[in-house]
Amino acid sequence: MGAETLDDELQALVGQPVGRGGPSVAPDPVNQPMIRHWAAAFDDRNPVYVDPAAAASSRFGGIVAPPLMLQTWTMPTPTLAGIAGRGGSPVEQDGDTALSVLDRAGYVGTLATNSEFEIVRYLRLGDVVSATTVFASISEEKQTRMGRGRFVTWVTTYTVEPDEVVGRQTFRILKFEPGGAPS
């Protein structure tokens, strides 16, 4: 049966890396300019991010990056030309991904549903972050308010050289068949 084949194909992905080419390494070490930019964007006045004296007298003993900035450090440097034509993907992607398997099966819609972070330690200036992401689970087909779909969960482990784990992120999306919602 085709459904079994698809299930087998999807279950084979669990534990496999999302994307190719090994870990995503941050293009820049944790640095004050990007932290300052982030703090300004969210009007976050926490002094441990930008004030060296206040940070030195805090429990952190010096400047730290905002904890939920963890994901930002390893975001790919985009190629802006043609980004709209790539569906918003920041960089060129070639070949199949697990998500294209789901697209071909009709689950072309994407809706992010959950994001969960565990912060092991705050990042300090100079830390170089790497991210490794693997598929944690792909659900069986479920009827959702968006239509028929499958929940896809991946886990990203963030490390600082050589191999210190500084945080983990669990991210879940629903891949669904648009227009299939019950009336």
Binding site: D44, R45, N46, P47, V48, A54, S58, R59, P67, L68, A112, T113, N114, S115, E116, F117, E118, I119, V120, Y122
Partner: peptide, 16 residues
């Protein structure tokens, strides 16, 4: 903003 600069956020789980 509430907990102050000595707070450390160790876990955050959100549903969108």
């Amino acid at each position: 903003d509430w907990a102050g600069p000595d707070a450390m956020v160790t876990r955050l789980a959100i549903r969108l």
